[in-house]
Simulated scan of single mutants.
Amino acid sequence: MPWMPELFSAPALERVVEQRRRDKLAAVPYFAGLMSGETDALVRSFAGEPELHHPVRGRVKGAHAFEAFVAQTNEWLAERNASVEDVDLVLTEGRSVEEAILRLDGEDGRIELPTAIVADREPDGRLDELRVYFSTWPLTGCHAVRPPLLQPDPEAREADVVGEYQRALAAGDVDAVVATFEEGGYAREPAGGRYVHRGAEGLRAFYELLFSNGGGIPLEHCTSTDDGQACALEYNVVWWGRTELPPEAGVGVYVRGDGGKLAAARIYDDSDPPLGGHG
């Protein structure tokens, strides 16, 4: 939820609150702000000139470029008859990671587009920059491999079960990965929709496929945002089993369940796995 609510008009803010059935908002969600019609409030939510990184539009920097991006995005959302489902929010002092699902008209009916929005903030709540993540697979049936947005940070390390999951993922250890999930836990691929794998059997089949290229998937860790309930990891994919890849940007959100293991792992990237036919 990147946008500062005090910058919006009362009618616009009331519409957002009513849509979400809340008494008030600490911040305005990403898509609600874009669709509010109040571009000036979005621009003023940034500490300096607006800067946003988008999977399709690339780097959007400066007020004029950002205003054009907002107008084009609204036109696209209207053409696709878009609706938005809020999923989750990871919030720390200097960063937030918002998850949503866009539902859009496609050629063969409605499609889902899972989207994550990372917002870096100043102490006063204003934005430094936004990084938007989604896979183009649901839109085009193809991957638009995305170059890195961030450099690896050796200090970005994940605690407890999230760290255990990352080590097992890098090692290609199916048993260890499945053991990090709670009963009924699930992993969702970037394409969303039918690409959800739940329970021990579903998870085992999924990770056996992921590791079928001769090994695990070690990631370059770039930022770690952890509020105790969930941890969001921005990363670069650099290897997939035996295949070295050009670094590709992504973010994963790992939600802890009541038992201390993972209730969910939701992935947002556009990597083209060397496996064939996979979203």
Score class of each variant (00 low, 15 high):
E129G: 05
G125E: 06
I117F: 13
A156F: 14
G141T: 07
G141C: 12
L149P: 11
R121W: 12
L127M: 05
T136K: 11
A116T: 08
D128N: 10
E129I: 00
L150Y: 13
D128V: 14
R121M: 12
F134G: 07
P148M: 13
F134I: 07
L150Q: 15
D124F: 01
G163I: 00
D153Q: 09
V145Q: 01
T136W: 03
R157V: 10
C142I: 02
R146Q: 15
V145P: 00
P154Q: 05
L150S: 08
A119S: 15
R146F: 06
G163C: 03
Y133A: 04
D160I: 05
D153A: 07
A159G: 09
A156C: 08
A144K: 09
S135R: 06
L150M: 14
L150H: 14
T140W: 07
D160V: 06
W137R: 09
A144C: 05
D120L: 15
P152A: 13
L149I: 14
P152M: 12
V145Y: 00
L150N: 11
Q151G: 14
V162A: 10
W137K: 08
P123V: 06
V161E: 05
T140F: 14
L139F: 12
A159S: 13
V118E: 14
P148R: 08
V145S: 00
C142Y: 10
C142H: 08
A144P: 00
P148S: 10
G141L: 11
T140K: 01
